[in-house]
């Protein structure tokens, strides 16, 4: 029985599934990262994903055009992010509370509209929604193992990796990215140099809205091809956890998101075992908590180690000076 699981994990198909499952974590996590670094953490990633997932499905079903669905999904997510930005940045509402309110509203709102449009409160299976294309990379797809892992994913998966690189360039190599980080770290100093703190944070929140929307669309137009109630299942929050676990850097965030994706994929594999499914479904979430604990313990240990080395070095210097 366990052999089956192990065999499953050490297969190219499993690695491919990790990448596929990580995608809807990587994309919102990048959005979370940008907003976090700007000093206005986007708590509403979850809600934005949900709204975008829903809108993409509905519009693609009614227009029968997948790209119109994607664009509408992104716009709807950005609109939700704009609401959050407006409440927080312009009306002075608490970021956390506004974010939570938006998440709750998104859950209820999507179910309500789903019912209005389809008469079903569970899923959009009666709508003929579209799926984004899958990319088969020429040549690569024919290489054994590598082809299975790298080729045949939907465009969002490739986009997730490309965007990680782009976000990294944006944050560290462009003046705008440096401004964004400056605003997050010391808004007063940034303002004193003529940077518009509010506008930069607005930009960061809208950008995080785009990225979270892509994550949501990935769920309903690629991973599955329908909308289900509460289909984000906490991914928006796990994405935020990935930001911190990844040390607030793009590549760190990517790796953390893939780590969570791995546990998610693992729980799928274990689904075939005679373990109560609730336990199996718990794995990704428990892993998140565990990873965050391990991370903070490790950071502490590193800090103490640094202190010890510093002290030794200093003692050596003092002795040298004394001699």
């Amino acid at each position: 029985m366990w052999e089956l699981v192990l065999k499953g994990i050490f297969s190219a198909l499993f690695v491919a599934s990790v990448l596929r499952i990580s995608t809807p974590l990587i994309l919102p996590a990048l959005g979370g990262l940008i907003s976090e670094l700007s000093g206005a953490t986007n708590i509403a990633l979850e809600g934005i994903m949900l709204v975008a997932a829903f809108t993409g499905v509905v519009i693609s079903a009614y227009t029968q055009n997948v790209w119109l669905g994607v664009i509408a999904g992104i716009l709807s997510g950005v609109l939700v992010a704009a609401f959050l930005a407006y409440f927080h940045l312009y009306l002075g509402a608490d970021l956390f509370l506004s974010g939570i309110a938006i998440n709750i509203m998104a859950t209820g709102g999507t179910i309500f509209l789903l019912y209005v449009l389809t008469g079903d409160k569970g899923s959009s299976s009666t709508l003929a929604s579209k799926a984004v294309p899958v990319v088969n990379i020429p040549v690569v797809k024919d290489i054994p193992v590598v082809g299975t892992i790298l080729s045949g994913h939907n465009i969002f998966t490739y986009l997730a990796f490309i965007l990680t690189w782009l976000v990294s360039v944006y944050l560290y190599r462009t003046p705008q990215g440096v401004h964004l980080r400056a605003v997050g770290e010391n808004p007063e100093a940034a303002a004193s140099l003529g940077l518009n703190v509010r506008r930069i944070r607005l930009g960061a929140l809208l950008l995080s809205g785009v990225l979270a929307s892509l994550g949501g669309l990935n769920l309903s137009m690629a991973y599955l091809t329908l909308f289900q109630r509460e289909m984000t299942a906490g991914r928006g929050f796990i994405a935020l956890a990935a930001v911190f676990l990844g040390g607030r850097t793009p590549w760190g965030t990517l790796i953390a998101a893939i780590l969570f994706g791995f546990f998610d994929a693992l729980s799928n594999q274990l689904g075939s075992l005679a373990i109560p499914s609730q336990w199996v479904q718990m794995i990704p979430y428990a892993a998140t908590v565990l990873a965050l604990v391990v991370y903070s313990v490790r950071q502490r240990a590193q800090a103490i180690e640094r202190a010890r080395r510093f002290q030794e070095k200093h003692l050596a210097e003092t002795h040298a000076a004394g001699d």
Binding site: N186, A189, L193
Partner: peptide, 11 residues
């Protein structure tokens, strides 16, 4: 030049 410096520590 203010008393509290207007700087970004990580840059």
């Amino acid at each position: 030049v203010h008393q509290n410096f207007m700087q970004i520590p990580s840059l």
